[in-house]
Design a protein around this nucleic acid. Structure first.
Lengths: 244, 244
DNA sequence: GTGATATGTTGATGGTGTCAACACGCAATC
DNA sequence: GATTGCGTGTTGACACCATCAACATATCAC
């Protein structure tokens, strides 16, 4: 099975037992930077000598991601995160208002990565808007498959739980898709219907596929199968939006 | 439009503040059974006189749903559920192995409702497979919008968390869609590609839209707008699967 | 150097899931 | 009809959690 190329980033290394879809046959477009920046300096688990940690905020985010990785989102606790970073159970409260705020930060970081990846996909796709849309779709789904932890957190927060920074990050990410839709309509490649609705349909489909893929519910046997499915589904999407 | 008639069931009455999409225009066809059976007898919160509850299992499920309704999935606790039913904090353990098992039961009940609704949609749609697929898509999304609590629980459990009964209920529900795809291919209405992949794409799209709708992220202003979007998106889906 | 302030710690409180031991009442057996 | 077994519900305990308040330490502005 294949691994769609972008490396597993931000120290997400241990593969979970049930990843039926991800795999690692190379794919040429993978030269792009990692989707999400790993923490710069400190190994999250290194015991510190100084009283102050130095970069606790990012370390907490990284530790939370690592925690979710080998387990479940539900078993993330501030205390366990603190333990992993080697800090007292109340230290996180100097950087996050509460547990939800930490998850918001993880999610926001994820959306920034998603934006980066989709923008990169557009940049290397010189064709018309239809081709660019397809490229975005592929990049989007690949991002989810390669960063399942991020992706899960990104969509685990209900509207009421999302803070302003997260909403902004989401809006930025959404903007990438929306601009392509608008461009496609301007050049008469896409139908002239409400661009917002068109974008919503597009987003809904890739989002649904991303979720299925992460959950291992796409019964693709090999990496090639996954690539083929990616091609198939995104082509269908792109065609659906085009003028008939 | 056809409004598959599921009424808001199982005592999900209080509308949450952010339901921008659900519309309650009455619909005449609503004679059909509710999508999910409400608990038969006892008002969940009625203080009981007898030592034994009578139908504690279903009451717990109902209470869990009610709890999620006015709040968040994350704040469901067995203890609070027990409190609402008027029973000790350990009573649930006579009916569910743990908290996850209770959520599994809720989810399974939801999938049974979803199956019923989609089957009903097919039954009242005499057209070809393409029209039936569109009907299923509408019914699916409407189910989600009208039963957001069920829907959220249905997809909140990771593969590893799902028990056998839930997986069976999911498979049954999936089967409805799959059969329509197969029929459409047999009658040369749909493309001759892998039916599983076709079904996955279809499911992914309606699933994505359902999620967006539930989260209130579809910026439709009125019920008519929502109906129009439903029509638009499902038509796109159906057309995408058809022979070119 | 001296505060002021940001950052980290300790301790306490009330909530949670779950286990073990116990209590009740229905139903089948004698 | 009394006895006994077992399903169902209760009480109590434990470990864990989120969060608040009070305190300690390091860093920075002056």
């Amino acid at each position: 099975m294949l691994m769609v190329s972008t490396r597993n980033l931000s120290c997400l290394v241990k593969s979970s037992k049930s990843d039926s879809t991800s795999d690692s046959k190379s794919d040429s477009t993978s030269a792009a930077k990692p989707a999400v920046k790993p923490a710069a300096k400190p190994a999250a688990s290194a015991p510190r000598d100084r009283y102050h940690h130095g970069d606790l905020r990012q370390s907490l985010i990284d530790a939370a991601i690592a925690l979710i990785q080998d387990g479940d989102l539900s078993q993330v606790s501030l205390r366990e995160v603190s333990r992993r970073v080697g800090v007292s159970h109340n230290a996180p409260y100097r950087h996050f208002q509460d547990k939800e705020a930490l998850l918001n930060a993880v999610a926001a970081q994820g959306f920034q990565g998603l934006k980066r990846v989709t923008e990169a996909a557009i940049a290397v796709t010189p064709g018309d808007a239809a081709e660019q849309l397809q490229a975005i779709g592929k990049a989007y789904i690949q991002f989810a498959v390669q960063n399942p932890v991020y992706y899960r957190v990104m969509f685990s927060l209900s509207d009421a739980q999302q803070d302003a920074a997260l909403k902004e990050a989401m809006a930025q990410s959404w903007g990438v898709l929306f601009q392509v839709i608008l461009a496609g309509q301007a050049s008469s490649v896409f139908r002239a219907e409400d661009p917002r609705q068109m974008a919503q349909v597009a987003w809904a489909m890739v989002h649904g596929i991303a979720l299925l893929a992460i959950e291992g519910q796409l019964r693709v046997q090999s990496g090639e199968d996954f690539d083929a499915f990616l091609e198939f589904s995104t082509r269908m999407l792109s065609q659906g939006l085009q003028q008939q």
